[in-house]
Design a protein around this nucleic acid. Structure first.
Lengths: 145, 145
DNA sequence: AAAGTTGAAACAACTATGATTACAACTTTA
DNA sequence: TAAAGTTGTAATCATAGTTGTTTCAACTTT
């Protein structure tokens, strides 16, 4: 089980927009080239980021732009934007525990708060990092090359 | 994306073993009835828990038993036993970033420590809860019914 | 010897992910 | 205004992963 690669693709895309915007038109085709991901997938991800208010794109004109400052975009915002985890939550509870069994009808309730805590721990960690930090690290690594 | 339900099934199974062992033979068939999950799946999960040293089962005789004290089994042990997340990690990095692009060839390095931190936060939370607590809560809820 | 059980392999059904094709709508530029 | 390039979106496909099901050999108990 793995969280969809759309998450890392989205971070890659946003880093590219910050890095190349102004120098060239950052189109879905260009981003497809940098990420190695199909251009239609890139456009889908860009659409999700646009719906979340993270980027701006327009039909026809071409070229994506950031809609927010780098330090106002957390990894959690991106993770939410690309729908890594749906409303059901990160953990998948088996759906037909036997209500005639005392364990079966109560185990869900007994586990729920723990599963929530684990998922929240993951998400809080993602909230604590902004895109500004990822971009800064990327630039630093590039400068040291 | 969701973590396989084998994880919650495993916790359910272990709680049942603690609850019913001694009163009856806790077979894969019985556990299938309580969880609502196919008996073959139950046997697969039991096999993984056995490999991890968490339960004891034997061919022929029937009836699973705990191999450790409840407070020596963390949710993380179970999560590891049933292989919720493989060696690749929780996050799935897109596999063909373009090495000719400065962002493409460095973004992985720039993100890795953050993704690891998020995964570790999840796992540490799971390590902090033992089966003893889940079982205690389950028993408490049953007693209050 | 018979009955019940585990372990494991093989296969089917279903779902999710990501790639691909196709095309309408839109913008820019020549 | 026409052409070229781009986005947005739907439809389809291949592949992989999850869960269920069937089957049967190996084992234990009675």
């Amino acid at each position: 089980m793995q969280i969809t690669s759309k998450f890392t693709v989205a971070v890659h895309i946003l880093t590219c927009i910050d890095f190349f915007d102004g120098q060239m038109r950052v189109t879905s085709d260009f981003l497809s080239g940098s990420t190695g991901v199909n251009a239609v997938i890139v456009r889908n991800v860009l659409g999700q980021l646009r719906n979340a208010g993270i980027v701006e794109t327009r039909q026809g004109s071409g070229g994506a732009h950031l809609a927010k400052a780098l330090d106002e975009i957390t990894l959690y915002d991106i993770y939410k934007a690309v729908d890594c985890v749906d409303d059901e939550g990160l953990f998948h509870f088996h759906e037909n525990p036997n209500v005639d069994c005392p364990v079966g009808r109560n185990i869900h309730k007994a586990m729920d708060s723990r599963l929530d805590a684990a998922q929240t721990a993951l998400e809080n960690e993602l909230k604590s990092t902004t895109l500004a930090e990822v971009v800064a690290d990327t630039r630093k690594i590039i400068d040291e090359e």
